[in-house]
Simulated scan of single mutants.
Amino acid sequence: MVIFLTSSPTGPLDGSRQVDGLDKKNHFVDELKKYWKNNSRCCMIAASPDAYKQNDDMCDFFREIFLKEGLSLQCFDLIDKRYSNFTRDDLQQYDVIILGGGHVPTQNQFFQDIQLREKIEDFQGIVISISAGSMNCADIVYCQPEENGEAIDSHFQRWIRGLGLTHFNIIPHYQMVKDRYLDGLRLYEDITYKDSIHHPFIVLVDGSYVLINECVTIHGESYLIYNEHIQLICHENETIDFKEMKIE
């Protein structure tokens, strides 16, 4: 299995940099083409299983941008609540699985409902995860509060079981949400920093990603938050081996 953990593979969600198709920053497309098979069988697993039109549009969008980049496709299927009756063997027939972005707990519950953790564990192809999809790849997922009320809800679960594809936690869209307030609290300084005690987080800006093959490498501007401290660990257009990170 080759895994691309992305923040946003199609450019910044805040529109701060215009991208036509897949984001080529930090050689993302070049790296993806190294592993892409001709006539790949691809499926996208939605984050919002009931948002049928949104899921259809997202599927069409990614199909078109992959073809535009010269990434050939045999099929591009969608898994949401309408198409969730699939087996482990069915999933293994694909060459590429895309884990869509959205609300982390909602996607996580859908993954549990379709038993994705058990079905994907021996997958041999490419996994491309987007935002919430990258967060839900963890063995134990950190759910950074996102919607109003979640930061102050004592019943909101910030730690839930994920897919078990990674042993670390990703937080996406740093450049967009780093100064955000939620429920009267600073999202990072008052919430995430406190949650980082004994829990390191790899924080990505849109355009950066983590590549997992024989090793784990971080590509592009990325940060480490650990024990209420943040530090830059990788610059734009650079890479760092995960093993070189000093988490103390």
Rank of each mutant, 00 (worst) to 15 (best):
F4H: 07
T6S: 07
P9K: 13
G11W: 07
P12C: 12
G15R: 07
V19W: 01
D20Q: 09
G21V: 01
K24A: 04
D30C: 02
D30R: 10
W36V: 00
W36R: 02
W36D: 05
S40H: 02
R41P: 09
R41M: 12
M44E: 08
I45Q: 10
A51N: 14
Y52G: 01
K53G: 02
N55E: 07
D57G: 05
D57V: 02
D60Q: 11
F62G: 00
I65S: 02
F66P: 01
E69N: 05
L73Q: 08
C75A: 11
D77Y: 07
K81L: 14
K81N: 15
Y83M: 11
D95G: 04
V96W: 04
I97D: 06
G101P: 02
G102L: 04
H103Y: 14
H103D: 07
V104E: 09
T106R: 10
Q107E: 15
Q107S: 12
F111Q: 06
Q112H: 14
I114N: 01
L116V: 01
R117F: 00
R117T: 01
E118Q: 13
D122L: 04
F123C: 03
G125C: 13
V127I: 15
V127Q: 07
S129A: 15
I130W: 09
S131D: 12
A132E: 07
M135V: 14
N136G: 13
A138F: 12
A138P: 09
I140G: 12
V141F: 05
V141C: 04
V141R: 04
Y142V: 11
Q144V: 14
E150R: 05
A151D: 06
A151F: 06
I152G: 04
I152R: 12
S154L: 14
S154F: 13
S154E: 15
H155E: 13
Q157L: 08
R158M: 06
W159I: 05
G162A: 06
L163Q: 07
L165S: 10
I170T: 14
I171A: 07
Q175R: 13
Q175S: 10
D179I: 05
L182H: 08
L182S: 11
D183S: 12
L185F: 08
L187D: 06
Y188S: 00
Y188W: 04
D190Y: 03
I191M: 07
T192A: 13
D195L: 11
S196C: 00
I197Q: 11
H198P: 00
P200I: 10
F201T: 06
I202L: 15
V203Q: 08
V210D: 08
I212R: 11
N213V: 02
I225K: 03
Y226W: 02
C234E: 01
I240V: 14
D241P: 03
K243I: 03
K243M: 03
E244C: 09
I247E: 00
E248S: 13
